[in-house]
C-alpha cells in the first residue's frame, strides 16, 4: 500500500515538475519560437490545464473522503451539478447586491447544497441500506432533474470571481502567473489537497477514517463510532464535490448551462482510482486529465494539419482510458469499499 501511494505521489510531483520545466524552457530558452513546444508548454495551455483540473481535484477529493470511509461514490457528477446549480440560483437571486457578497452567498450555497447531497447519499446507503451504486446514480438523476426543471435560460447571473494575486509570490517569473495569480477557489482546491492528505495520514480523524474504510468491524470493536464518521465524511465529501461544481459557475464561466458538468464527475472518479484513493495521487491524475484537455484545445485552435480533428477530440478520453486501464491491478481500493457495515450479523 505504502509503495503504491508513494508511486502515485511521485507521479503527481513528476508531472508538475515536467510541466513547470517546460514552461521555463518556453520562457527563457530559444525553444520559445518552436511552435509545437509553445503549444505544449506555453502559458496558455498550462493555465487552461489548471483551470480544467480544479473541478476534477475538488470532485476527486469529495470522492476520496467518501470512499476512504468505505462508501462507493459514483454520484460525484450529481453532487457537482447540484453545487453548480445552487451557486447559480444564489448568485442570480442576488444580482442586485454588490458582487462580493453575492459571490460569497453563492459559495455558501454551493457548499451547503453539496453537503446536503453527501448527507443524502449517506442516508440512502447507511440508514436505508440502499445499494451504494444505485444511490450514487439516483443523486445524478435527482440533480439533473431539478436543475433542468427550474433552470430558466433567460436568466443571466452577473460577474464571477476575479484573480487574487498573492503578494510577492505572484511576481515570480513563470511560476507567479501560473500558480499565484488565480481566483480563490483554485487556491482552495490546491490547499484542500494538502490538508486532506496531511489529515488522513497524521490526525486521529484520518487514522479512524482509514480504519473504517478498510475494516469497519475492527474499528468498531476498538471503540470507533463507525457510522458517525461515515456520515461526517460523506457529508464533507459532498461539500467538496459541490464546490467543484460551484467553481464552474462562480469562477470559470460565470453562468449555468444545463448539463454543464458534462462528465467531469466521472473523470474525477477516474482520478480517485488513478490516484489510488490518495489526495496527492488524485491531484496528479486531475492535472494529467486537465492537461490532456488543454492540449486538445490548443491543437484544435492551431488547426494542426497533421491530425484529423476527430482524433484530436479523442485525446482527453483516450488519456483517461489508458491511465485507468493501465493501472488496473496496481491500485488497491479500500478493503470494505461498497460493503455496508452491519454490526449485528453473526460471526
Amino acid at each position: 500500500m505504502a509503495v503504491v501511494t508513494q508511486s502515485t505521489a511521485r507521479f503527481a510531483a513528476g508531472l508538475s515538475l515536467l510541466l513547470l520545466a517546460g514552461a521555463f524552457l518556453v520562457e527563457y530558452a530559444p525553444f520559445a519560437d518552436i511552435q509545437p513546444i509553445r503549444m505544449l508548454f506555453g502559458e496558455n495551455v498550462l493555465n487552461f490545464a489548471l483551470r480544467a483540473a480544479v473541478p476534477l481535484i475538488l470532485g476527486a477529493l469529495g470522492g476520496i473522503l467518501c470512499e476512504r470511509s468505505g462508501i462507493v461514490n459514483i454520484g460525484i457528477e450529481g453532487m457537482m451539478l447540484a453545487g453548480a446549480f445552487a451557486a447559480f440560483v444564489a448568485k442570480n437571486a442576488t444580482n442586485h447586491w454588490a458582487l462580493g457578497p453575492s459571490l460569497l452567498l453563492g459559495t455558501c450555497a454551493t457548499l451547503l447544497t453539496g453537503a446536503a447531497m453527501g448527507l443524502l447519499h449517506a442516508l440512502f446507503c447507511l440508514r436505508f441500506g440502499m445499494d451504494q451504486i444505485i444511490s450514487g446514480a439516483s443523486l445524478i438523476l435527482l440533480s439533473m432533474g431539478i436543475s433542468a426543471t427550474f433552470f430558466d435560460e433567460n436568466t443571466v447571473a452577473v460577474g464571477k470571481l476575479a484573480p487574487w494575486p498573492v503578494p510577492l509570490l505572484s511576481a515570480w517569473p513563470v511560476i507567479g502567473p501560473l500558480l499565484f495569480h488565480k481566483p480563490p477557489i483554485t487556491y482552495v482546491a490546491l490547499l484542500a489537497v494538502a490538508v486532506v492528505g496531511f489529515a488522513l495520514a497524521h490526525t486521529r480523524w484520518g487514522l479512524r477514517t482509514r480504519a473504517i474504510g478498510e475494516h469497519p468491524r475492527a474499528a468498531d470493536t476498538a471503540g470507533v463510532a463507525v457510522l458517525r464518521l461515515q456520515y461526517l465524511n460523506t457529508t464533507l465529501g459532498g461539500a467538496l464535490a459541490g464546490l467543484g461544481g460551484g467553481y464552474l459557475v462562480l469562477e470559470a464561466v460565470g453562468q449555468f448551462q444545463e448539463g454543464m458538468i458534462a462528465g467531469r464527475g466521472f473523470i474525477a472518479l477516474a482520478a480517485v482510482i488513478f490516484g489510488n484513493w490518495h489526495p496527492v495521487g488524485a491531484l496528479g491524475a486531475s492535472l494529467l486529465f486537465g492537461y490532456a484537455q488543454a492540449v486538445h484545445n490548443e491543437l484544435l485552435l492551431a488547426q494542426a494539419p497533421f491530425l484529423p480533428r476527430h482524433f484530436v477530440s479523442m485525446i482527453p478520453y483516450v488519456v483517461t482510458v489508458i491511465a485507468v486501464a493501465g493501472l488496473a491491478g496496481r491500485v488497491r481500493a479500500p478493503g470494505s469499499l461498497g460493503q455496508p457495515y452491519l454490526r449485528e450479523t453473526e460471526a
Binding site: 497524521h202 490526525t203 484520518g206 482509514r210 478498510e214 475494516h215 475492527a218 474499528a219 476498538a222 470507533v224
Partner: peptide
C-alpha cells in the same frame, strides 16, 4: 475475536492505538 479485528494494511502501532490515540494539538 476469533477472526482477528485488525486492519491488515495498517501497522501494529496504528492498530493498537486505534480508538485510543494520543494527539498533540490535533496531530497524532
Amino acid at each position: 475475536h476469533q477472526h482477528f479485528q485488525l486492519v491488515s494494511s495498517m501497522t501494529v502501532l496504528e492498530n493498537i492505538v486505534l480508538g485510543a490515540e494520543t494527539t498533540r494539538r490535533g496531530i497524532l
